[in-house]
Design a binder for these strands. Structure first.
Lengths: 200, 200
DNA sequence: CATGCCATGTAAGGCGTTACATGATTTC
DNA sequence: GAAATCATGTAACGCCTTACATGGCATG
């Protein structure tokens, strides 16, 4: 998956400026891209050159002008064919903390417990932040479209978009929950280990 | 955390060649670095220039020569001070699949179910591979040091290294387990959603 | 006989990051 | 009055990846 594909997907059905795209990328914790200017604006220029997006400059008084990008028909079909061909990509598992733990175990086992406690605290803090952000976004969306035409579809079932939105948040939540439980369990083991070591 | 820190940690107590370090990095799924030649060999040269590692070339007959690197006293103290100062680093959460799901929900909801099924299958396959690799490594280590002087320390408790080693595998295992459960639950929800949609 | 492993490196190119630049408006 | 937000971009630098290069040994 390239950043261009993601941008096409984000643009589907809702034209946006580069600034908006950038914000989306910065705010979502699971994106592959940090969402810095250089990435986003260059990708948009390139998509424009390839004719997959169209750019309309909107001048506003008392506010900077915006370049609003939207999908062209070519962009729509590029998106569709990417989606049809795309295989699901596996998550990237990058956990520097595991390296830190391994090094600490070899060189200074006394640091294990404080390291684990700090890690646990930080993961829990991140978890809380993710939950708060979700609540904030939910409130925002409820304000934007009420009564919500999207929450229930015509047949009375949940819409696909709502389901996937909830699924994404659920995924992140489970990730932090698993990490928290793991850290707790390792901390307990380490406490009983070093405790026993001192007793005997 | 830089690759240099990780190399110092890996070298602690067991001198190795660049090739060995590279293999370790390639094999461990949670490292931040892919472990390609360019990274490892350049980092070793740089550590050598800074005087943190020493290099001894070992010539062997009927096999290529190896450059075995080990920590110098300066390297030992650099490692210790890094470890003392280091704050635990949070895992990176990069899940392109969540983007794919979101795009699919907006453009082609019928693709959700097959995407989810493929993803589930791939995650389960990765999970099995990780478990197998763990079993393989365990067998290797049991062969190398038997009776194991490291599994139990002098006071009869588990050593810190053993504990952390098990903890690392446990972390990876929990990660895949959480991802599997999540995928299963979303797949079920999507099935009942699209099923209901067709019934009514 | 070919493929793969061991073992060391180099070269080229792309991608990503941080920082800089500008300028108006809103908020504390 | 300072700082953050909106909004667009550019420049420099570094890291990371892929590929190339070499060469002997082992395995099928």
């Amino acid at each position: 998956m390239q950043i261009e594909d993601a941008i096409l997907g984000l643009l589907k059905g809702r034209p946006m400026s580069g600034y908006d795209l950038k914000k989306l990328m910065v705010d979502s914790p699971y994106m592959l891209w940090s969402g810095n200017n250089n990435q986003v604006y260059r990708a948009l220029l390139q998509l424009d050159e390839r004719g997959l997006v169209a750019c309309e400059t909107v001048h506003r008084e008392g506010a900077p002008s915006r370049k609003v990008y939207s999908l062209t028909p070519a962009g729509e079909s590029a998106l569709a064919s990417w989606l049809a061909a795309a295989l699901p990509e596996l998550p990237e598992l990058r956990k520097p903390f595991l390296v830190q733990l391994a090094v600490a175990a070899r060189t200074d086992p006394d640091r294990l417990e404080p390291l684990l406690r700090q890690y646990l605290a930080e993961v829990e803090a991140q978890h809380r932040m993710a939950r708060e952000q979700r609540r904030r976004l939910d409130r925002l969306e409820d304000r934007d479209r009420r009564p919500d035409p999207d929450r229930l579809n015509e047949s009375g079932g949940l819409s696909a978009r709502r389901l996937v939105e909830a699924a994404i948040y659920d995924n992140i939540d489970r990730f932090y929950a698993a990490e928290t439980e793991w850290a707790r369990s390792v901390l307990e083991q380490e406490r009983s280990r070093s405790g026993k070591g001192r007793e005997t």
